[in-house]
Design a protein around this nucleic acid. Sequence first.
DNA 1: TGGTACCAATAAAGCAGATG
DNA 2: CATCTGCTTTATTGGTACCA
Length: 200
Amino acid sequence: MLNLNMIDTLGGGIKKMFILQRNRHFPMPDYDLKEPDKVKVRIIGKVIDENYTRMLIQKTDLSLEEVIALDKVQKRKPINEEEFKHLKRKDLIEGRRPNLFVSAEVAAATDTKADYIRKRAFDKQHYIKMMKEYLEKFGYATRQDIDKLLLDKISDALNSRQKNKFISNLLQEMRRQGIIYSVGGKRGRGAVWKLSKEET
DNA sequence: TGGTACCAATAAAGCAGATG
DNA sequence: CATCTGCTTTATTGGTACCA
């Protein structure tokens, strides 16, 4: 047992377990100290979120506190304000509460993500222009047409669910600005979008 | 000059209901 | 019944004024 590193040789058992797991790039142990005379612990020996794992491999300078907070994020447990701000500032997490997730590809992606935020207003104009051109050419478009037109051009800083919603929001925005309208005011799947007369 | 408190604008996500 | 629209809500961003 000693050789297998399964016996706590030096004191500081609990903290040591955290560090051990960190060094193995595994999720943090879940301690349960609710019963006064017992210590229950769950050690997870598999990857929960590969972004978390990759982050630990890439960023060796994370403090134990940071790793623990990140662990909460991957386990979808709530984190406090302080932890949230800290992780967000360091671009270690993304998303909006309560739907946070561990950032993907830390080093490279922080740039892309920043790029995305900086350019998104500009990009939006670009997408609107593309959609207008499409509608001018073909007269109408279904959601599938629009997805095909834009989906692969949207920044990879967004996941596919976010990309979908981005297009939905974009359509709504254009509708509200009176650039386009849904033929017969249709909702749901069958909606067909057209350019408003003033825009043609 | 740099930090920050506040505010308006808006991006993103949630939700309900329509629709095929 | 999953998808998509339309509307609502929430969070973030970016500007600006203010103070040390």
